[in-house]
Amino acid sequence: MFTVSLRAVALYAVSVIAVRIMGKRQIGQLQPYELVLAILIADLAAAPMENVGTPLLYGLMPILALLFVHALLTLMDVKSIRMRKILCATPSVIIRKGSIQYDEMKRVNYTLSDLCEELRSQGYLNIAKVDTAILETSGKLSVFPKSEYAPLTPGDMGYSLRQEGVPLILVMDGKIRPEHLQASGKDEAWLMEQLGKAGIRDLESMLIASLDTDGKLLLQEKSKNAQRIILNALRPEEVVW
């Protein structure tokens, strides 16, 4: 029984590595050739996992071969527009200037029910508010409302706002993240000084310390009734990342 378990662990590890090599995409975002590969890897790993009489290599070698094909197709996808069209198809405009493109829907086997469902899931109850809807190659529908129904932005109001950057997580679960602390241009002594200002002495007790691009340091301890503390830790000109 240990052999079966060890084989399962080995095959699981190889499958995870294979899927990891494929790249960070969710199932819904997979291109057709990637989806087929994901299904096949699962099936190939299952066969030697359940039968000890089948050599492990019978599962591993086809996975390697499929990874090779996947890498080849990915290169072709990136390098050649024609190949991309063959492998991934092209996006289809389902609603153009507010008008439903029925012929295009028929061509891509997309029903009105699918369209309404996808519009609802994106917050559009009334199809009349949609100007453009594009069915992407991953199967996701990108929806663009008519200008009069689009959300108001600060730009529309004539406001110019400072771009908000990525906050740095200086402490996570009681541990300092050195790469983030280094990116902030500060050191551990400075961090401990800031914690001291908030009355925190023990770094281990920290749940999170996050420094945003406005120079505000958010602190929260792990204890049950811990309150969120926000300190003005940096002046705007001190924000270097």
């Binding site: 290599l57 070698m61 390697l64 071969a65 990874l67 090779f68 890498a71 080849l72 290169l75 990136v78």
Partner: peptide, 23 residues
């Protein structure tokens, strides 16, 4: 891109070497 080329080369070599060796 570089990673993909590496995967391409390594998997091809592994499949060819292991396949030929076993055969």
């Amino acid at each position: 891109m570089k990673k993909t080329v590496w995967v391409l080369v390594v998997t091809l070599l592994l499949v060819l070497i292991l396949g030929l060796l076993c055969a």
